[in-house]
Design a protein around this nucleic acid. Structure first.
Length: 746
DNA sequence: CCCCTTACCCTTTTT
DNA sequence: GGGTAAGGGG
């Protein structure tokens, strides 16, 4: 296990010498509970991975005796790779993964203890909702008055807190649907078991329940896991906390080797059930715990750190940390605050600064625009398209959440597991087969009467039920199709079968017929799905992967500006960071204030802290005096967070905008709330607007009149050209001026 | 049964 | 403004 000299450049404990004293303490305090408070950019991941490797290198445990938990697949993958790099060999047999992946693994071993079989299905959010609606429907709940979505979030919150229906006291019941939330929850759980399925929350809930009630199982895991490592501890919810505590609190207190790494200042997921209290009370849960603070920041310049620290200091109830520059070259430019007239000017400002840094040779991958809410990305996207700056939107809709992928997945699920009623329901009339509400209701009724899965009931209907000839024939064809494909699966393998199924069922044809701009992309996605299927040995293995590892790494390559929400940016870093939209109501978001009060405000402030600390060299914060929200223009007040930034670290720019802002806010002078006397918009000089493109125009390739395709706007016809800019009349999106590089011949 | 109109909602979303 | 969900007309 020890690295041989050939694998590592220097001595075998070389990996320790690269750590600073705090980090080293965090790595070498191996025994007993340890909390590592790791500020942003202080080498948290390095500590975690080095500690993991250290445990293995010093032969304190075999790889299979360490439990390492992360929140994201990405973090898990990174840890696996980095541990392997230190060890000099691939790390096999690890219990390393996300909370949910580890729980799924455990639950497959003990499924019968909660009434499931080990091949249970993991439902996606669509299925969950449909199932819950069915349960509510059966219970006669008026879903107009009591929206299913509301009940779903109540149930999820209960699951986040580790509460099975039996553990909910009458006092804790919600007044939803006249105090029926708890019994509806119980009904929903029952249906899940009948379907041999569980939802995401169940993975944690079931395993925790098993550990709580089966001492022998718990004891087995106690024997197995000698060391526990937890990443992003501030984001754990109650059930994750209970799970960890059950696993970590071994009889022998000397063996409670749990190490949690986190940062209370970066806790931004309370709305997902995360309990910041978990990290705040670590010492109480694990008496005698050691606490190590990592405060040397190796990422950002001094002004950026000072701005972030100054802001977060306004929060109360912190464990307390002060980031200090860990680099000698940490001097740098001040954080800038730019005031703009409106959101369009804000987008132009960001765009022209990005153009400027691009001209000076900066890598666009080192620039990010981080927004509070998803809708804000649109204005920037449009600006990037106009300027011809490559960008990518991180997050947003995930690959496996797209309609076409979900449909295809439903087909595969029925193939894999004919009793998967939810999947069958999803695709029975997709593409349209003339099997509408009436038919489906009849099948459902038959299934309920016969106590059989939908597929079986459907066969019964086809063979002898009361049906009109057309739907009967359509249903027969579908069912015979599945029989054929299932038989093919054994013969030809899952990849060929999947491709055949998608064609023969008429599903790909449906999208080929579709004339909307997205159709082509959807077909590509289906191809990608089949390709991904090839990476797995079995269909079941693939389905498990998709349920747990929903990832979206398209557009990852190439030099592109990143556009994402602040939440999505946690854990990332960039040379240049833009933080637009720092306005009251947007950031801090009004709803966070309304629903969370002072706590909500503090979480918003932590979000601001996360945003600023993403920046290595340059951080540009902006706010606009006017913003279009939904349909109409609203005037906006600068965010209180701007006032909380330490003034000596911040340089205010965009005086023109600020001046107008000041005048706008003087009520009497301009009377009727119409746009004020400063009507003359400042001339916005966009650097680079007149630059001549070095590349010759592609007029020859795309002459006026030719059909083109654009990623965002779809199909259109070229109606004019100006050097490399084309005027295109899009079928759907209307007339737009776009750069020729952004369209292709249709 | 399908499709088109209309009404309604609108923060964040690691798995 | 735009995307979804329910209802009514063809």
């Amino acid at each position: 296990m020890n690295a041989s000299p050939g694998n590592l450049p220097a001595s075998s404990d070389d990996y320790l010498s690269r750590l600073n004293p705090e980090q080293r303490a965090a790595v070498e305090t191996v025994d007993g509970p340890l909390l590592v408070l790791a500020g942003a950019g202080t080498g948290k991941t390095r500590v975690l991975t080095t500690r993991f490797a250290h445990i293995l290198m010093t032969r304190r445990a075999f790889p299979s005796q360490v439990l390492a938990v992360t929140f994201t697949n990405k973090a898990a993958r990174e840890m696996r790779e980095r541990v392997a790099a230190i060890l000099g060999e691939p790390a096999e047999g690890l219990w390393l993964g996300t909370f949910h992946a580890l729980c799924a693994r455990m639950l497959r071993r003990h499924a019968q203890l909660v009434g499931l079989e080990s091949n249970f299905t993991i439902l996606d959010t669509d299925d969950q909702m449909r199932l819950l609606k069915q349960v509510m429907d059966a219970a006669g709940v008026d879903m107009k008055r009591w929206p299913p979505q509301g009940l779903m979030s109540i149930i999820q919150r209960w699951k986040d807190r580790g509460l099975t229906p039996a553990r909910i006291t009458a006092a804790e019941d919600s007044d939803f649907a006249n105090n029926r939330a708890r019994s509806l929850y119980a009904g929903y759980q029952e249906r899940l078991v009948q379907l041999n399925a569980c939802d995401f929350g169940d993975l944690m809930l079931h395993v925790t329940e098993i550990l709580r009630t089966h001492r022998d199982v718990l004891a087995d895991y106690h024997r197995r896991f000698r060391y526990i490592l937890v990443d992003e501890y501030q984001d754990t919810n109650t059930v994750q906390y209970l799970w960890l505590r059950l696993l970590a609190q071994r009889e022998n207190t000397a063996e409670r080797n749990i190490c949690c790494v986190g940062d209370d200042d970066q806790s931004i997921y309370s709305w997902r059930g995360a309990e910041i209290e978990n990290i705040l009370r670590f010492e109480k849960d694990f008496p005698g715990a050691t606490i190590v603070r990592l405060e040397s920041n190796y990422r950002s310049t001094a002004p950026i750190l000072a701005a972030a620290s100054g802001l977060i200091a306004k929060n109360s109830g912190r464990l307390g940390k002060t980031l200090r520059p860990g680099r000698n070259d940490a001097k740098g430019e001040p954080v800038r605050v730019v005031s703009l007239w409106d959101s369009e000017e804000e987008a132009r400002m960001v765009g022209s600064r990005i153009e400027a840094s691009r001209r000076s040779g900066e890598n666009l991958s080192e620039t990010a625009i981080l927004v509070r809410a998803g809708f804000q990305t649109r204005a920037f996207e449009e600006r990037m398209i106009t300027l011809g700056i490559p960008y990518r939107v991180v997050g947003g809709q995930k690959f496996y959440e797209r309609a076409e992928i979900r449909d295809a997945m439903a087909y595969l699920r029925v193939l894999n597991q004919p009793a998967d009623d939810l999947a069958f329901e999803r695709i029975v009339n997709v593409p349209k087969r003339g099997l509408g509400d009436t038919t489906i209701r009849a099948i459902t009724q038959q299934a309920r009467d016969a106590q059989r899965p939908l597929v079986v009931a459907a066969w019964q209907m086809v063979e002898g039920g009361a049906m009109r000839p057309k739907p009967r024939q359509a249903l027969r064809e579908l069912l015979e199709g599945f029989a054929r494909w299932r038989e093919m699966l054994g013969r030809e393998g899952h990849v060929v079968t999947a491709a055949t199924l998608l064609d023969e069922s008429g599903y790909t044809e449906m999208w080929k017929q579709d004339k909307s701009p997205e159709a082509a992309g959807r077909l590509d996605n289906l191809k990608e799905l089949v390709r991904a299927l090839g990476e797995f040995e079995t269909l079941a293995g693939f389905l498990e992967h998709v349920a747990l590892v929903m990832e979206n790494d398209e557009n990852a390559e190439g030099e592109r500006v990143s556009l994402m929400t602040l939440h999505a940016a946690k854990g990332l870093e960039f040379d240049h960071v833009f933080l637009p939209g720092w306005e009251e109501g947007l950031f801090p978001h009004q709803r966070a204030l309304d629903e969370g009060g002072e706590k909500g405000l503090e979480e918003e402030r932590r979000l601001a802290y996360v945003g600023i600390t993403r920046a290595r060299k340059r951080c540009i914060i902006s706010h606009a005096a006017n913003r279009r929200i939904y349909a109409n223009w609203t005037s906006q007040i600068p965010s209180r967070f701007l006032d909380e930034l330490p003034p000596d670290q911040v340089q205010v720019e965009g005086g023109a905008g600020a001046e107008r802002q000041r005048m706008l806010n003087q009520p009497s002078a301009f009377g009727n709330g119409q746009f004020p006397l400063v009507a003359r918009k400042p001339r916005v000089i966009e650097a680079g607007a007149w630059e001549v493109s070095e590349r010759p125009a592609r007029a020859a390739a795309l002459p006026i009149g030719s059909r083109v395709f654009h990623q965002k706007f779809g199909y259109g016809r070229v109606v004019g050209a100006d050097d490399n800019k084309l005027d295109v009349e899009f079928d759907k999106a209307g007339r737009k001026r776009v750069l020729d590089t952004f369209v292709e011949k249709a």
